[in-house]
Design a protein around this nucleic acid. Structure first.
Lengths: 192, 192
DNA sequence: TGACAAAACTAACGTTTGTTAGCTAGAATT
DNA sequence: AATTCTAGCTAACAAACGTTAGTTTTGTCA
């Protein structure tokens, strides 16, 4: 448990507020109050409200990109890759819950280069995921259904997981991974 | 195609803007400009910005409540009920895409009684869904996995569908229903 | 055509917003 | 001991916000 710099504390505090009310509904005065200081004092540590948002979102986005790069350069079957991606998402959800909320809800409030960088990372990520699914369909491992439906069923569940993970009294991470993988790979129907 | 009242036009216009940028980032002047008028003129038709949000969200929430009530009073198996719910969500997504965006992203900006009413409807809805899943597990139709994981996997996919439905060039609704039901009921693994 | 209502307008209001400027007390460094 | 750095403060800014008041234009129907 290493000590947070004042800047990191501010970003962390802001992220909790963003998660509850969204970027635009949280004021610098709200953040300052939660830190026990005045709004103007925040600017000794950060340069703008936008910087807080960008730091938060791009950190998580980089985490996803790193994870996906590891998966695609791995020698394993498409199904194994999908399983690894699901597990990676769950790990990131647990560790970066607030950043993930900002990424999901407030990415469109990023400006200029930050916005461009984010959109590119997200597009690349989805494209990589889509390719894996298609490979699985081609090899016969995955049912020949519309790949977009598979991609988005999995992705939207994983992306929204943060909303719900803390609400329900801390489901064990390993149970969560196991059941989530099972739901998507094998469905919910009990066949026998 | 019945003619929209001026009030309905405003709410519809606002809903498109809310979907892109979120409730707080859209100003009354933005809405007015999109309507080709001045902000003050909006108040000849609506009483407040909050009224727009509440109308939008509660209309969709009522639609879901109506649908769920129809499902639970139906004589059919849990699996059939889940299938019906998935199809209902897809229909609502197609018909109320913008309202659904507001419901998902901006419900927390509802005030007082509107907020209370919404939260109650959502809680009831989830509780009904959970009960159906549990019945399916008890009867053996559904795999005995953690019901929350099943509930959440399905619900979050359905709730996020609006983001993606229009983006990908208008996938046929019936194909979408068929594949989505198949993904959740049978999974993605091909067991030939 | 004149009367009336509907729906637009201009102007302004009181707040709230993100941010800057300048200051001060204490801690760290020289 | 003198200096510089750190991290807070008060005060204020210009812009943007939702909304109100009062006025003018437009359309409808007697």
């Amino acid at each position: 448990m290493k000590a947070l710099s004042r800047k990191e504390e501010i970003i962390s505090t802001a992220s909790h507020l963003f998660k509850e009310k969204g970027y635009n509904a949280v004021t610098m005065r709200d953040i300052a109050e939660a830190m026990g200081m005045k709004a103007a004092s925040l600017y000794n540590h950060i340069s703008s409200k936008q910087e807080i948002l960008a730091t938060l979102i791009l950190e998580v986005a980089n985490e996803f990109t790193r994870g996906m790069n590891a998966v695609i350069s791995d020698v394993s079957s498409p199904l194994e890759k999908i399983q690894t991606i699901i597990e990676m998402h769950i790990d990131i959800t647990v560790n970066y819950s607030e950043g993930l909320a900002a990424l999901n809800n407030d990415w469109m409030h990023l400006e200029n280069d930050h916005l461009k960088a984010f959109v590119k990372m997200r597009t690349d990520y989805e494209e990589n995921f889509r390719t894996i699914i298609k490979q699985g369909i081609d090899s016969g491992e995955i049912h020949a259904r519309h790949p977009e439906v598979i991609l988005f069923s999995i992705l939207s569940t994983l992306r929204t997981l943060y909303v719900w993970y803390q609400k329900r009294g801390k489901l064990d991470v390993n149970v969560l991974k196991k059941d989530m993988v099972a739901v998507f790979l094998n469905g919910i129907v009990n066949k026998h």
